[in-house]
Design a protein around this nucleic acid. Structure first.
Lengths: 342, 342
DNA sequence: CTGAAAGCGCTTACAG
DNA sequence: CTGAAAGCGCTTACAG
């Protein structure tokens, strides 16, 4: 008979597996098996243990399980922002993909900072996660070293990696930036401006796509670029619209690196009496909910955020299970949504 | 000398405290103290242990610590939505408040479902959280019972509780709904409609505030209410604007229970050629970033989301530490933002 | 199908 | 200021 209450108790006061086992009249490890691997146990025993669990209100202690099994059942997810709807939709996809699997999801907000990312990863390592879902392709040397040293399964989200070994789920930010610029060129625009903020890697890749299209068309002009490091907001979009027009007054179209900036640019045009799109075409990136509804509706790039999260989590789970994935890179593509604003 | 490698090893392969201690030439528990309670240890020892930690790249195992100390350093946070900017700002406040304290934050999305909330709480209990931050005042009997049985410190966010014992941080949803309606009445509107969606407890409280003001003014009319259980979106706001006008064609103002619905209503007015506010006043609730920028700018209620998260987390932390809080209820108030739309 | 023993990596009393 | 022992609550081999 297991001794259940020690004298100078350090016990937590919670119901333990040992108590459940005693109540069911079995060994602790038998109770453990009845709960964790019910198939390896007789029906009668399963029922007996389950009854004891219910009567006692037993809740397994995850820390003890993690320690004994050296399997944390934790997945860490790092996103650069929680105020950006793009990433909350990614998170929704991740949660739906992992829902049934008893994974604990640790959500970290790096705030677009490498230092924050390092700190979060270092902290999450204490929880010994089974794998990580990271946003973006580029990470600080320190992060790369930590990840390599721990042989942590990692799936990168949002962009496609050039490295075929790397697990990544997303779409080509470069191609999307290129496609939107081509669309504007095909509409006859010649002085197409690019407004970029935050200057995270995705914005930079979109800008590269824009530049490639402009160079190939023989229309590149550095005056047509407004790039700032501040976070993208509607207010900033309004401000940068002004800066662009000051810098390139003959600008006939503006490609904003995301919808927030584009919304701000359009609202500012309305306040200044600039007709969109007849005087100035404006387009964005991501297709946020408001973009289809505002007046004029916004021409933008639709991106598969939810699916990125879902597929990335599914891929990570299969890798954690030791499976060899059919594809290490999953390109989910993008959709150009041609609407009224451009 | 501690035996470091057993034969049939179940070891995780990670660096352990015992290895650090051996390298530093001290006992394991001395190393533990040097790390966790550096003040209780000599400077020389502290340095020696720190050096061993650095050389070995030691990362403490959180599961082991939690198990041994029966302190998880986990705080669980439940919000009804991650796609709603209101709650992501609450989360930002929570994270900032808890940042320095080595707390692991578990973020759960209940999707406005009591069943989901029950499931998440049951799951989080496995991690033995030190406390919980819950959204809203009303919870299912099962949740209440679980929380009581575990004597879990809980702080409720978003609304003010009528129960003085209950820890809550927010503002009065009822008063805010009442204030906005009074504002419209004072502007001379008589046929003021209310559009409510999701019908979560906050929306219902706002509606009660609306009704009180209308009844007191002798202007209440059930025809002026459109209430649906679907999630609030811009698209739904556009649709419900139509339903309201069909149901109460003489309606001269509409109070939408949140900004998303109000945005949709205004966009729809623009499409139908209804002038806002001259033909129809429209106002919202929450003051999302777009509300100040759109044309017309939106009259709405500014709510202290970030501060709610920050103060709620601060309060919870003090309660976890065993402190007796000066105030169990923290009313952060709201601000009526009078703009162009109403 | 079931169980006695050992161990996961830490921290908590208790001594010295 | 430092340490030997025991224990947190589970699971992993290994037997039977």
């Amino acid at each position: 008979m297991t001794k259940i209450q020690a004298g100078k108790s350090r016990a937590s006061g919670r119901i333990t597996l040992a108590m459940v086992a005693q109540r069911a009249g079995v060994a602790t490890m038998t109770a453990s098996r009845a709960i964790s691997q019910p198939d390896m146990v007789s029906q009668a025993l399963r029922d007996r243990v389950q009854q004891a669990v219910d009567e006692l209100g037993y809740v397994p202690n995850r820390a003890a399980r993690a320690l004994a099994s050296s399997q944390s059942k934790v997945i860490a997810v790092l996103v650069p922002s929680l105020s950006n709807a793009v990433f909350t939709e990614v998170l929704a996809g991740i949660q739906d993909a992992l829902d049934a699997d008893d994974y604990q999801i640790l959500i970290g907000n790096t705030r677009y900072s490498d230092r924050e990312e390092e700190k979060l990863i270092a902290t999450y390592l204490q929880s010994n996660p089974d794998g990580m879902l990271l946003s973006g392709l580029t990470h600080s040397p320190r992060v790369q070293q930590i990840l390599a040293a721990n042989r942590m399964p990692v799936v990168s989200m949002m962009d496609m990696s050039a490295d075929p070994e790397r697990l990544s789920v997303g779409f080509s930010q470069f191609q999307a930036g290129h496609a939107m610029t081509r669309y504007l060129l095909d509409k006859g625009h010649k002085r197409i401006g690019f407004i970029g903020a935050q200057l995270d890697e995705r914005t930079l890749r979109r800008a590269e796509g824009y530049r490639k299209a402009m160079v190939d068309a023989g229309l590149a002009d550095i005056k047509l670029e407004v790039m700032v490091g501040e976070p993208s907001t509607i207010a900033l979009g309004a401000e940068l619209l002004g800066r662009m027009l000051a810098q390139a007054p003959d600008c006939d179209a503006i490609f904003c690196c995301n919808d927030d900036l584009a919304h701000g640019a359009i609202y500012q045009c309305q306040r200044r009496g600039i007709a969109v799109p007849s005087q100035l075409a404006v387009c964005g990136f991501n297709d946020l909910p408001a973009s289809a509804w505002m007046n004029p509706s916004l021409t933008t790039i639709g991106t598969p955020r939810y699916r990125i999260g879902f597929e990335a989590a599914t891929l990570l789970r299969s890798v954690i299970k030791g499976e060899q994935p059919a594809h290490r890179q999953i390109d989910l593509g993008f959709t150009l949504m041609a609407r009224e604003s451009a």
